[in-house]
């Protein structure tokens, strides 16, 4: 039966010897919740793998960001491109509106 303090993403089968959620490891200082550095890294790796599978893998075949509005990476790419291509003036900059200045008599 899984320990109640073990997070949902913790597999419990980490190869690290001190990561087993037994009483002896729980009593050691930094592992009050039954975790250790090894298990945290393993969990982070699992999260990264999950994100990669869900987001990056589908994006691998996307050439033009405009053709894939539902893809998170394409959406971000299109946003960055849009910001870069905006004209420099007049523009809003922290609430500042810039006014063109004419020159006369120089």
């Amino acid at each position: 039966m899984a320990d109640r303090s073990t997070p949902w993403w913790f597999s419990g089968d980490s190869s690290a010897g001190d990561s087993a959620p037994d009483d002896s490891s729980r009593s050691s200082g930094s592992a009050e919740s039954g975790m250790s550095i090894g298990s945290l890294i393993a969990g982070a790796q699992q999260l990264f793998d999950w994100a990669s599978e869900l987001v990056l893998a589908p994006h691998a075949d996307h050439a033009d960001p405009r053709e894939h509005p539902d893809c998170l990476v394409c959406k971000g790419t299109a946003l960055v491109q849009g910001v870069r291509s905006e004209p420099s003036a007049p523009r809003a900059e922290r609430g500042i509106s810039w006014i063109p200045v004419e020159r006369q008599g120089f």
Binding site: I96, S97, R103, F106
Partner: peptide
């Protein structure tokens, strides 16, 4: 100066 770079901005009740 003739060659000066000029910018004029407005934010609320202030001009820059």
């Amino acid at each position: 100066p003739a060659s000066a770079a000029l910018r004029l901005g407005r934010t609320d009740d202030r001009v820059i």
